[in-house]
Amino acid sequence: MLKFLGSRILTFVPTFLGVAFISFAFIRVLPGDPIIVMAGERGMSEERYAELKAQFGFDQPFLVQFWEYFTGILQGDLGQSFVTKRPVWDEFFTLFPATLELALCGMVFAVLLGLPAGVIAAVNRGKLWDRLFMSSALVAYSMPIFWWALLLIIVFSGHLQWTPVSGRIDLVYYFPDATGFMLYDAAVSGQKGALWSAIRHLILPTLVLGTIPLAVIARQTRSAMLEVLGEDYIRTARAKGLPPARINAVHALRNSLIPVITVIGLSVGTLLAGAILTETIFSWPGIGKWMVDSIFRRDYPVVQGGLMLIAVMVMIVNLTVDVLYGVINPKIRKRS
């Protein structure tokens, strides 16, 4: 297992280098000068422009700029946002817990509903449940997120007033961040009702964010299950008189999990990069909106640093998925 992990971690090095370079080059390839964008309609004099260019190091050759950036990364310095003037590192880790909390809740919701839905649909292939679940999954997958989110807000927050409209907790509660994870911070704050408020604020964003992964997981589980259910060993198990519940849960589901875990891993990776629409609509202070705003403002350090940190997170998720493959299927572990 250690050798397996070691070989996977070694692949991080070239990936990390590649991401650092691509993220650095990508934002510079885009048209638009950050200094001119910063000055806006007001503009600035030639002298001031030259002064700022030197201040930001844009007067240096591309490779020199990259080298300075890269050596900075190795020392743990991702630079400072042009806009907020704060270190990128600080900004990322202020916002990332909100994204992670929402992504995890969204995935738990998607897995808890998607997996059983897929299994039920596969077991009842062609029957009512199969058609109901799969057509619902198709609808869920096709819905525009902003429309779905606003619809839920209007119905549940506006008309029924069951859930708050947006934010992470009622404004009545105020406690400095301990971890940035609102559920945990609210629970340890000692303020009565804070945890319940945080949970209520999570309901709609979780539902919205989890909708598409739920649909994908349900469909993927169904197709993987159908494939496994046709295998000889399942027929053998049935012939031996094993109860259907045991066949489905132990023999079929476990062997269907590899493609499902792949999908879950990819979805988590995507969600960790931030869910721009969900975050914007629910005023959720995560990294998705932060990154998109930074691209529009040509805030180079944030785009570069943010992309790299997100890439590292995604690499860690992929590593976890690889490890899980090994746990589920020992043959993969041995091959590696």
Partner: peptide
């Protein structure tokens, strides 16, 4: 901080 204008409207209606 509420970036979406439609959500701001919902919040003011709800008394938030």
């Amino acid at each position: 901080i509420t970036p979406d204008a439609s959500v701001r409207y919902q919040k003011i209606q709800a008394g938030e």
